[in-house]
Amino acid sequence: MAEIKKEHQLTVSVSPHVKSEETTSRIMWSVNLSLLPAALIGAYFFGPRAVFALTIAIITAVLCEHLYQRGMKSKITINDGSAFLTGLLVGLNLPPSVPFYIPVIGSFVAIVITKQLFGGLGFNVFNPAAAGRAFLLISFPKLMTIWKEPTAAFVQMDAKTTATPLGILKEEGIAKLMEVFGDKTNLYTELFMGHRAGSIGETSTLALLIGAAFLFYRGYISWHIPVSFMGTAAAMAWVFGGKGALFAGDPIIHLISGGMILGAFFMATDYVTCPSVKKGQLIFGAGCGFLTMLIRLKGGYPEGVMFAILIMNCFTPIIDRGFKTKVFGFKKPDSKETKK
């Protein structure tokens, strides 16, 4: 619709007729912009290696999209920012000190296998970035779980490896986590500011929330998925997270550690792979939260956000069908036969 610029051109088309400034590329670049704070914080804490990984991931993603579309002789859409966004998300989901081929493989899988082979933007079943990261995590279990201790890494280059807060929580329990971070307030602040081990872009809750606030302000994401996602996860963490007793867990740790914020605000809300009806989005988010906590508390991996999103992506078509909106003025027919 955006191409028609002549003032008096008459077009005959089906609804919707309301035109706005919003285009796919505008939304995509806005989301890219909203991830900038998180990327900057990641770069600050994890240094040149993190910047390197991010750059490689983005370049590969855009390049793959370009080459594939050229090979298929279809319209080249790298300027709409969606490939850039996928690359950025793949990069933000990587541990800081990965070798160069990890982001290359991740972005390739995300763009070519998960997105383009299914028909490109709008046709992919799974969230490309989450699928890319899942592929990497299963392929390179060792490399993908080397976590660097955050330092102001442009100043001092040698970094120690350490475990993520969720890893510590899983392996050694909450007491050890307290020991590492001092008291509870300190733990919350460190986690909130992003001064902890983890993927490049997932550490700083603050930076991610700034980006998410921008998206809310522009109306690009609605509250349904993030709130139901994090609400369910928090409830599960509170009820089942404690050792021995019910209702003794600490939901806040679970919310602000791991990839929960990044996943709930930026990855689960992907337009293509989440349900488009609001009620369905609530179910989708709740399912993501439930599966995340199931994996975190009972599964083999310390973190489950990405797997939860991928699993719920499978259910998106069913959820959409179940919550089909009624046509205005439509009355439920009496007999079953009138169904189209």
């Binding site: 081929y101 296998i113 082979l117 592929f135 299963i138 392929s139 390179f140 490399l143």
Partner: peptide, 22 residues
Amino acid sequence: TKPLLIMILPAGGFLAVGVLMA
């Protein structure tokens, strides 16, 4: 080189069958 472990796991089987079928 470092192998892609996923390809010898069942998930990789589905990927390989799908991509080769296409």
